[in-house]
């Protein structure tokens, strides 16, 4: 994995993803400057086949993006360019491309399209994982519970793309990596606030009840990070989809526990719009349901294990590393 890419991305995110930018994006303003900076540094091309980067690098960047609640459809923009390829205009200009879900196979109405309103081209993913290119003609604006645009888009010129990748699993892995990063940030916020907030004459970090909450949070965040790493490491292997299933499930479970606990640590302050915590926790709550909820992926993984049978379950678990 290329640490240089992740570090370069982190510098840009740290600079640009201020509370003001996050608030403005939630008010519907596309973060043009951030996007142009990323393009100037070539990030929009990094998932394209001849970019020189590994696909794993994309997920390393997405994890960093999660730490900063980057208000762009970064995963979708980069994967759209990959799937469109040069032939269908992927990465041709700095214009934004994105990915949505086909309402039903063959339909020209695509749903949950991140920043569909700002996109030049859109990739639609069908139920069976097939990917199609489309050009937006009409947009019905909508947002997820974090205020991230998830538009409904009418498209035309729909054409199948010659890509044989497990698109649904890659999109789910994007949410896994983003969530792993956001969870790390939420833990940091919780620790920081507990050390600075004083009650009864001392920092609340000194109270055992708060320490235990944050210890539980740290354990959940570590588990989510390890699950995410494992799924990224499985890219290209025959178990990839099952590893993503495990990671989406495990990370989703962490999200519920961590968000609840760190809000409790922050008290009323973390419940205000003014505080930054909600930009992370609301994304975490949204992302755990996007690209397949825990139950969806658990059932997929569980069916495979049931088909293998009780006496083969251990072998399945022990042959992953």
């Amino acid at each position: 994995m290329d640490q240089v890419l992740a570090d370069a991305a982190e510098r840009i995110f740290r600079d640009q993803c201020t509370k003001t930018t996050l608030d403005a994006a939630e008010d519907g303003e596309f973060p043009e400057r951030l996007w142009q900076l990323l393009c100037e540094n070539g990030f929009q091309l990094m998932a394209m086949p001849d970019s020189g980067a590994e696909l794993a690098d994309l997920f390393a960047v997405l994890r960093v993006a999660g730490r900063f609640a980057v208000p762009l459809p970064l995963a979708e923009a980069l994967l759209a360019n990959r799937w469109l390829g040069e032939e269908f205009g992927g990465g041709e200009t700095n214009a934004l491309n994105t990915v949505g879900l086909m309402a039903e196979n063959g339909s020209s109405r695509w749903l949950g399209v991140p920043w569909g309103r700002a996109a030049r081209r859109i990739v639609g993913v069908a139920d069976d994982g097939g990917v199609f290119a489309g050009t937006p003609v009409a947009v019905n604006e909508a947002v997820n519970l974090a205020g991230e645009p998830r538009d409904q888009v009418e498209v035309q010129d729909v054409r199948p793309l010659p890509y044989a990748e497990p698109a649904p699993a890659l999109l789910a892995l994007a949410r896994v990596a983003q969530s792993a990063g956001a969870l790390e940030r939420v833990l940091e916020l919780g620790i920081g606030y507990a050390q600075e907030r004083e009650q009864f004459g001392r920092p609340i970090a000194r109270f055992q009840a708060v320490q235990h909450l944050l210890a539980m949070v740290a354990a959940e965040v570590a588990a989510a990070g390890r699950a995410s790493d494992a799924a990224v490491a499985a890219i290209g292997s025959e178990r990839f989809t099952l590893e993503v299933a495990a990671a989406k499930s495990r990370v989703g479970e962490s999200v519920g526990l961590v968000a609840e606990a760190v809000h409790q640590v922050h008290g009323a302050m973390g419940f205000t719009y003014e505080h930054q915590l909600h930009h992370f926790t609301r994304r975490l709550w949204a992302w755990r349901d996007e690209c397949g909820s825990e139950a969806h992926w658990q059932a997929l993984l569980g069916r495979r294990l049931c088909a293998l049978g009780a006496d083969q379950v251990w072998d399945f678990l022990a042959t992953s590393s």
């Binding site: 590893e243 299933a245 495990a246 825990e294 139950a295 658990q298 993984l301 294990l305």
Partner: peptide, 12 residues
């Protein structure tokens, strides 16, 4: 199936 998968995800 979801229960089976949930436990597997923890174990892995």
């Amino acid at each position: 199936a979801a229960a089976v998968g949930r436990i597997a995800a923890h174990l892995m």
